[in-house]
Simulated scan of single mutants.
Amino acid sequence: MPIKKNKPIYLQLVDRIKSEVANGILSANDQLPSVREMALQERINPNTVAKAYKELEAEDVIKTAAGKGTFVTGNVDRFKENNRRQLFDQLSHTLSDLIQIGVDKKTIKEFLNGKLGNDDAENQ
């Protein structure tokens, strides 16, 4: 995991695991590496992994079964929907910010259509 200096490492790990769940890389009941194994894989302190896992458990993304391991919860669909909603909220705020700074709607539509692979906005 490439480490960014502007965000705590445990939150970077939390974000990565949540992203993997939201994108279907990790599914319900998939087992995560142990704290020690994850620390070795990521070359980070085991306490950092433990803190990330604790945060993910608090958010009901993972669960730890004593003696069995750490697993993605069965709440994957709810988590994906929450993630989707958050992304649309961010997009909405970004669009509002663009309009506030004077970017016209036509330019925004052209940009979005280009990103979506649709050059003809009238067909949508």
Rank of each mutant, 00 (worst) to 15 (best):
100 Q>E: 12
56 L>M: 15
24 G>M: 02
28 A>G: 12
50 A>P: 06
39 A>H: 10
73 T>G: 12
105 K>G: 00
93 H>W: 10
86 Q>G: 07
100 Q>K: 05
19 S>P: 00
3 I>L: 10
39 A>D: 14
13 L>N: 06
54 K>E: 08
96 S>T: 05
83 N>K: 13
69 G>I: 13
86 Q>Y: 11
56 L>G: 05
41 Q>I: 13
78 R>Q: 14
95 L>C: 08
27 S>P: 00
58 A>G: 10
54 K>A: 08
87 L>S: 03
98 L>S: 00
107 T>H: 05
90 Q>V: 07
32 L>H: 02
26 L>F: 03
42 E>S: 05
38 M>K: 09
27 S>V: 07
106 K>W: 03
87 L>K: 04
29 N>R: 11
67 G>F: 10
72 V>W: 11
26 L>N: 05
23 N>L: 15
81 E>P: 01
116 L>G: 04
38 M>C: 12
95 L>R: 00
73 T>P: 11
64 T>S: 06
122 E>V: 07
36 R>N: 14
32 L>E: 02
42 E>L: 15
20 E>Y: 09
40 L>V: 14
11 L>Y: 02
16 R>T: 04
100 Q>Y: 02
24 G>Q: 00
119 D>K: 02
83 N>Q: 11
73 T>H: 11
83 N>H: 13
6 N>G: 07
85 R>W: 02
106 K>Q: 09
102 G>C: 01
60 D>H: 06
113 N>Y: 12
44 I>R: 11
14 V>P: 10
109 K>D: 04
21 V>T: 02
123 N>F: 04
33 P>R: 03
38 M>Q: 13
20 E>A: 11
18 K>D: 02
104 D>E: 09
67 G>D: 12
27 S>C: 09
35 V>T: 12
92 S>F: 10
108 I>V: 15
13 L>H: 04
10 Y>W: 14
106 K>P: 01
101 I>D: 01
